[in-house]
């Protein structure tokens, strides 16, 4: 069994296609949608946890590629430099995935890296450039 979290970028023309449904039907993969939305550029973004037999998993990825869906592995893409972050919170309303929130007690900004879809919106708006992209 393989289980991976991936980010799918659907170009505008594919946004209303039953692609995820096909993944389940054709390749016997289980999925868990962690986040899905349409960006201002009308690109569909979906963060999935995909589980299934290794063989089917690879076929599923191949299928997505053939449809024109851009696939990105998730999680380690955007990280927070804990030394640089000064916990201001100006990134919080910018994050489309609610991956940055303020703890009401400590008033510190929490980075939920599991929710992060690596859209990089926070990267350039962070005044201390604490959000870093890792390739």
């Amino acid at each position: 069994m393989t289980s991976k979290r991936i980010v799918l970028h659907f170009p505008h023309r594919l946004v209303d296609q039953p692609i995820v449904y096909n993944l389940v039907k054709e390749f016997d993969l289980k999925f868990n949608i962690l986040k899905a939305f349409v960006t201002p550029q009308e690109e569909g973004l979906m963060v999935l946890e995909l589980t299934g037999k290794k063989e089917n998993f690879d076929k599923g990825i191949e299928y997505l590629n053939s449809c024109g869906v851009k696939i990105q592995p998730l999680s380690q893409d955007v990280i927070r430099n804990e030394v640089k972050c000064m916990h201001c919170g100006v990134c919080v309303p910018i994050c489309p995935a609610n991956a940055l929130t303020v703890d009401q007690e400590s008033r510190k900004v929490i980075f939920h890296d599991k929710k992060c879809i690596a859209c990089e919106l926070c990267v350039r708006i962070c005044p201390t450039r604490a959000m870093e992209v890792r390739f």
Binding site: M86, H87, C88, G89, V90, C91, V92, P93, I94, V102, Q104, S106, R107, K108, P127
Partner: peptide, 25 residues
Amino acid sequence: LKTGKIVVQNKEIPTGNLSSYSKAR
């Protein structure tokens, strides 16, 4: 502002602080 939301022109909008409260503390 610290609740993370304010209402302006009947719209609820998320707030962000440029000044770090935890560091101020």
